[in-house]
Simulated scan of single mutants.
Amino acid sequence: MAEIKERSCFIHVDVPGHEENSPDLPESYPFPSLQTLGEDLVTVLDFLRVRYAVGLGEGAGANVLARCGLAHPARLLGLVLVNCTASTSSVADAFRSRFSRWRGADISHSEEDFLIYHKFGHVSSLQEPLHYGYQQIPGEGERERTLSEYRSRLRGNLNPHNLKQYVRAFINRKDLVLRGCRPDLLLVTGTRSPYASVVEKMYRDLDKEKVTILKVDNAGDVLTEAPAKVAVSLLLFCQGQGLLTSLPPPGVERRMSRNISMEEYDTPNIRRLSLTPAPATAANTTP
């Protein structure tokens, strides 16, 4: 992602009350639905004076972003949706039964485990080493570190009172109809994600000229478990929108005849695109 980051501006958006160490939202505050969040997300672009963007959302955030793309298709060139859900699923039903017992000010162990399942997939696959035969899967230590950091955030930095309201909005979401969505879509999931089958069904129901799917084997949280594959797909997707075209395709080394700045390299070569014939030289001029 290094070269992509150098050429891009990432805008991270927190839903109300979900910035780190946020105070409790007032009881009188009606937490917005996912539809309202999606429709109002364009105000962030307006405030920052961003004319066009490519959206990247995960989980409930992907659902919100998809609704923004439907409501404001002229502002979003494309949408990268990680583990997006289009309708209420069995996962949400399971969440509802566990969430109904979540009444204290803190997140209990069972709710914490389910939030981890919601993000990473099967909890057991994160608590115990995974093996194919006798060979351990590479990156298991990194996976455990990521899981530990996520648990720490749940226990220390996120406001559980506000988090419950967001979860309730996610559970009570309305169906998301993406047929006819104007921005191009990249659907991303992993085989260990609880939403893998949901994402696959969404892909089957959509126009294949507008949607592409990336399904990563042996991954639940693809952003941390398979970042290289996601980065390559993100680059190709953006290049399909006419962005980041100066970056070489994966596996292709870029060669430049002289040292030029990044800004110069990204500037189109107008002379190369011109249809005007080159001027005649002494070598090819006839008397």
Results as ranks from 00 to 15, higher is better:
M256T: 14
E6I: 00
D40N: 15
P129K: 04
F120G: 03
L235S: 02
S233G: 05
R7T: 06
R143E: 08
S100T: 15
R155V: 07
T224P: 00
L56C: 15
S233C: 08
H122R: 08
S90H: 10
T286Y: 10
F10W: 14
P26F: 09
K229N: 05
A283Y: 09
L185Q: 03
G78S: 03
K5Y: 00
Q127E: 13
L236M: 12
N269C: 15
S33Q: 07
M262A: 13
F31D: 10
L214Y: 04
F170Y: 12
A282I: 08
R155E: 14
T224I: 00
G190N: 03
P287Q: 03
A280W: 04
G59S: 15
T189N: 07
A66M: 05
I260Q: 14
L126H: 15
R271C: 04
G57V: 07
F95C: 13
S246R: 02
N157V: 10
F170P: 00
P250R: 02
R179T: 14
V82W: 09
E111M: 15
C84D: 03
R272P: 00
R271I: 11
P73Y: 04
G17L: 06
T285F: 08
H12Y: 13
S22M: 10
V222A: 01
E264I: 01
S8Y: 02
L273G: 05
F114H: 07
F47L: 15
N284E: 14
G156A: 06
Y132W: 10
L48G: 11
V123Y: 12
V199L: 02
H131I: 05
A283R: 11
L48V: 11
K208E: 07
Q165H: 13
G61F: 06
K174T: 15
R173D: 07
S108H: 04
A228P: 01
N284M: 06
E264M: 06
G242T: 01
C84V: 15
L176T: 02
G38V: 08
S90I: 06
G17V: 08
E20C: 05
S257E: 11
T276E: 13
L76G: 05
T245K: 09
T267Q: 12
P279N: 05
A74R: 13
S124W: 08
L115V: 14
V222R: 00
R153A: 14
A169P: 02
L163T: 08
I11F: 02
Y166C: 12
L130W: 03
V15P: 13
A169G: 07
V252E: 12
D106V: 03
M1L: 13
S124Q: 14
A169K: 03
T281W: 00
V216S: 01
Y132R: 14
I137N: 00
G251S: 02
R155W: 05
D217Q: 10
R179V: 10
E144M: 12
Q127A: 09
G242D: 01
A86I: 12
V15D: 08
H12N: 11
R151T: 04
V13M: 05
S97G: 01
T285R: 13
R145M: 08
G104A: 07
D205F: 01
D24S: 13
P138E: 08
P30L: 13
V177S: 13
G141A: 11
P279D: 07
N21E: 10
A283H: 10
L275K: 12
L154R: 05
E225W: 02
V230R: 01
H118G: 01
P32Q: 09
S110A: 14
P16I: 10
P250C: 01
C68K: 02
V198C: 00
A226Q: 14
P16A: 12
S148N: 06
